[in-house]
């Protein structure tokens, strides 16, 4: 999924590199690394998705549309019935998008006040708060997700404490639910929401909110009409940075969601695992995910350039 976050950053930052020819050389090592490790794997995926599957994993070098056909259409067990649309995989993608969306909203609702709080601290203490936000990243995501699984088990610490405190009568069943996946995604990507929003609120000129108050605006109106429009780029960046990796996330859905809450990440992973896999189908699934992400970014970029033009 690294490939997507890279291509997405290229879209967000307007490239005006035309007039520093000399300085462009400074970027050369990064271009080479990204180019090699981004472009080559994506091209490999593209090629594999149009090949024929080898039954014990791998591919046969023979052109085939079977992978894409399998994704969208159902032709019966033996492939000889008339094609009808197969909702199995489309549903997985839809569910993943919904889970990613809910996780993004959770991150936004909790991340925005957090970012606002940090950005309005005295300049000297802000780095400390940013540092605190990044502390969870010192621990590997796998370990954090596994520990979350342990904490929210039916007989895990969370339920034990809630039962002992008398807040609940029966353990809350969290593990292998949608909520667990959403919480897991939220927990994994919250800093990606907080940091860009923090950066844009920090740049916000708070004399503007004073001016709004001076002109009879309440705090809520000031937030809605003055602060939000001006920190919107940070909010959008945060949403993209959470939504895109959440959509293709593998660890949280796999460890916390169980088989019922199968998401894109797990679907793709299965195609490349062991002997039961289907490499062309995994590659095609990846390409479809990539196209969806690129479409989202394209729509965003187009809106942005419209807004710029109107200014």
């Amino acid at each position: 999924m690294k490939s997507q976050s890279n291509s997405q950053q290229n879209n967000i930052v307007p490239a005006n590199a035309t007039f520093h020819n000399q300085k462009n050389k400074l970027l050369l090592p990064a271009w080479l690394v990204i180019g090699f490790f981004l472009v080559v794997p994506v091209l490999m995926m593209l090629v594999y998705s149009f090949l024929t599957k080898e039954f014990r994993g791998g591919v046969i070098w023979e052109f085939s549309l079977a992978a894409y056909d399998q994704f969208f259409f159902d032709r019966g067990l033996f492939g000889d019935e008339p094609a009808k649309i197969d909702w199995t995989y489309i549903k997985i993608y839809g569910r993943s998008a919904l889970q990613a969306l809910i996780a993004t909203l959770l991150c936004l609702v909790i991340g925005f006040p957090t970012a606002y709080y940090i950005a309005t601290r005295p300049v000297r203490s802000r780095p400390l708060w940013v540092f605190l936000i990044t502390i969870p990243y010192w621990v590997n995501l796998l370990i954090r997700t596994v520990s979350m699984k342990f904490l929210i088990r039916d007989n895990g610490p969370l339920n034990t404490w809630l039962l002992q405190a008398g807040i609940i009568d029966q353990p809350i069943h969290l593990i292998n639910t949608n909520l667990a996946v959403q919480l897991g995604l939220f927990y994994s990507y919250l800093p990606f929401m907080v940091l860009p929003i923090y950066a844009s609120i920090e740049r916000f000129d708070f004399s503007l909110s004073e001016a709004a108050a001076d002109l009879y605006a309440s705090r809520w109106t000031t937030l809605r009409q003055i602060i939000l429009p001006m920190v919107k780029p940070g909010i959008i960046a945060g949403c993209i940075l959470v939504f895109v990796p959440s959509l293709g996330a593998f660890l949280a859905p796999d460890l916390l969601g169980g088989a019922k809450n199968f998401m894109i990440g797990s679907l793709i992973e299965e195609q490349f695992k062991g002997n039961a896999g289907n490499w062309p189908f995994g590659a095609a699934s990846s390409m479809i995910l990539l196209i969806i992400v690129l479409l989202v970014l394209l729509i965003y970029a187009r809106n942005e350039s419209h807004a710029q033009g109107a200014r």
Binding site: D205, S207, L208, E210, A211, A212, D214, L215, I226, P229, M230
Partner: peptide
Amino acid sequence: INTVFQQYSLFPH
């Protein structure tokens, strides 16, 4: 009471 601010503080958007 309204204020004319030193840096004007016009709403840029």
